[in-house]
Structure formats: C-alpha cells, structure tokens
C-alpha cells in the first residue's frame, strides 16, 4: 500500500494562484496514470486556512486534501505541516521574517513539523543561508524535488540533504491546475490525516518522487503498479 502525496501546492487562496481545489483534483483524476498521487497538501502562502473544508471534494474524487502553510523565514521558505492554534498564536504567518529555529522548535513541541522547501534556490533556500550561518537544529526533511525549480537547484537541494542527513520530500509547488502532482512524496505508510502525515514526516519512511516528463523517478513503474 503506502501513500503518494503532493506536499506543496497553492490554490486560489494564495494571492498568486488562481487554481481551484476542485480543478486540481479533477486534473489528478484525469492524469492518474502518469501522476498516481493519492492526495495533495495545500500550502498557501503566508497563511493558514483554518476553516476551509474539503471533505465533500475528498469524497467526490476519492483523494486526500490537507491544509498546511508555506511561510517565509530568516532561512528561506518553509512548509509547516500540522499548523495548530499554538503556532498561529505565537507566529504571525504573514511576517516574511519569521525566526526559522523558533518556528521549528515550536512546531516540534506542538505536534507540527517544518520542512524547508526548495533549499537549493537562491535567497529563499536553506543552502544559501547555510553558507554563512550555523545550520538549523532539528530539521528532519527538506524538499529536494520542486516543480518550479530552475536548472541546478535540485542538485543543490539534494547535496544539502545528503550533507546534513535530511530526509527528502517532493512537491509540485503548483500554482497552475495542470502542474499539480508532478513532484510528490511516496510514504510507506497509509496516510489519511494531518496527524498521520506529521508522524510519518518525523519518523516514517519516505522518498521524493518525480513524475515530470523525462524526469520520472526510477521507482515510478513500481509505484504506479502498486496504486
């Protein structure tokens, strides 16, 4: 079994995307043979949609839809899974200068987990900050596959993950309907809830998986036949 999730996507709730969640799910259904993901995580920019409810869409499409956030910190952009009242109270998600270490620690203490995204990207990726600052403590994973990467950025991301022993995830970072699910993360465990996702990101077994044309991960055929 196992679960394949696109851990990084932006719906029309993010200011720079016009993609409706329903259109994302419909697109996955249409392209299931080439992007066999079981669900998506909406990581809206600098906010958390506490009250959004996608249960009807989940049932209709048979896909998981979870809510998370992409925030901006002094070490670059980071995905926050398991956003909770404590984090929202303590941090202003709209602040583009959040303290990354404080966020990581507060997340760990409150049942959430922080995953730096596109770490190989200039300015907003971990790699550049690590060149002249102390590495962050308690990072468990980074995003090594990102659908918006430029040439060379993913190599940099992977190198950083290997150097520091971080586990690796993937996400499409889609802002357009047709780009959803092109990068994802394959978990060995079955995941249906955010609690399970946080637990697996911290302690489980998983790997980044690439469904982009011409760049498919070697595991793909195996995974596709499993789903």
């Amino acid at each position: 079994m196992g679960t394949i999730l696109d851990l990084h996507s932006h719906s029309e709730s993010s200011e720079d995307s016009r993609a409706p969640v329903e259109a994302y799910l419909n697109w996955i259904r249409l392209r299931r043979d080439e992007r066999p993901v079981d669900g998506i995580v909406l990581t809206e920019h600098r906010k958390f949609d506490r009250d959004a409810d996608y249960r009807e869409l989940e049932d209709r499409f048979g896909l998981v839809v979870m809510r998370a956030s992409e925030v901006e910190t002094d070490y670059g952009h980071m995905l926050v899974f398991g956003v909770n009242g404590e984090l929202l109270h303590r941090f202003d998600f709209a602040n583009v200068h959040l303290n990354a270490q404080e966020l990581i620690d507060a997340a760990a203490q409150s049942g959430a987990v922080v995953v730096p995204c596109h770490p190989g990207r200039p300015t907003i990726g971990l790699w550049e900050h690590y060149r002249h600052r102390e590495p962050l403590r308690n990072v468990v994973a980074v995003e090594v596959l990102n659908g918006g990467s430029r040439k060379g950025e993913e190599l940099q991301s992977r190198e950083l993950a290997e150097t520091h022993g971080y586990r690796m995830v993937g996400g499409s970072d889609s802002h357009l309907v047709s780009l959803i699910g092109l990068c994802a993360t394959r978990f060995e465990a079955d995941i249906r809830t955010m609690e399970e996702l946080v637990r697996e990101l911290r302690d489980g077994r998983y790997d980044a998986i690439d469904f982009r044309p011409g760049r498919r991960s070697p595991q793909r055929s195996h995974t596709a036949s499993d789903v």
Partner: peptide, 10 residues
C-alpha cells in the same frame, strides 16, 4: 500592497 521574498530577495 504586500510583501514577500523570492529568488532575488525581498
């Protein structure tokens, strides 16, 4: 008006 950070900085 709003702010964010990107490849080229703030």
């Amino acid at each position: 008006t709003y702010e964010k950070t990107g490849r080229s900085g703030k």
